[in-house]
Simulated scan of single mutants.
Amino acid sequence: MALTFELDPALTNELRDGVVALWTDVSNAGGAVGFVPPVTAEDVRPGWLGHLTAIAEGRMRLLVGRDEAGAIAATAFLAFNTHRLMKHWIWLYTVMVHPGHQGKGYGRDLMAAAADAARGFEGIEAIRLTCRGGTGADRFYAACGYKEVGRVPGAIRVGDGDDRDDVIMLLPLS
């Protein structure tokens, strides 16, 4: 069964709890979404609050995918550039599919829904994202049409002696 996607859902306590739980589960399953496991909901909550602030200020939009039971199963955050010379593209942050739903094509569905949402934003011509090297995420994003446009070697330190590349990828929307 496919996910149902919603752009800009109501910012309820249920949404907060669902996104924080998803973020915690994805992180603890080894997902490269800003944390190194193990993490708790309390570890993740400041990330949610940072995104929530950007949403409230109109700098970010939230895309949520719900499974057939209505549970939050996937998210992506689309962030507008504030620099006057870069307003023609957006950032994609915190792309997540619940570990229990991986392997069902939901990641590709989420990426397609994010691109569709971005196409609806006036003046947006591309989506840019970064991902942690060594996780296979760059191969996934490439399979979704993104092209690697840069790489910063060793920019992400996930542990002592474990530095990963920061891979920069771009999806033109035209």
Rank of each mutant, 00 (worst) to 15 (best):
A32G: 00
Y106D: 12
L3D: 03
Y93P: 08
F77T: 03
G50K: 00
F5N: 06
R119L: 14
C131E: 07
P38D: 07
I127T: 10
D162Q: 12
K104Y: 02
I156K: 05
A118T: 10
D43P: 08
A32R: 05
V44K: 01
D25F: 07
I156P: 02
G133Q: 09
M111C: 15
P37I: 08
L173F: 05
A10L: 15
V26S: 06
H88A: 04
I156E: 10
A76H: 03
L52V: 07
R84Y: 11
D163W: 00
I90R: 06
P38L: 03
Y106P: 07
M60D: 03
G103P: 10
G123V: 13
A117F: 11
K87A: 02
A56Q: 13
T130V: 15
A29E: 04
R16H: 14
G145E: 09
A112C: 12
D109F: 04
Q102S: 13
A76R: 04
A114H: 14
N28D: 06
G145F: 04
W23K: 05
G31H: 06
A10D: 15
E42F: 09
I55M: 00
G105P: 12
E14V: 15
V19S: 00
M1R: 11
G105T: 09
V39K: 06
I55R: 08
A32D: 02
I168D: 12
G150Q: 08
D160V: 14
A32Y: 01
H98Y: 09
A74K: 02
I156V: 08
W91C: 03
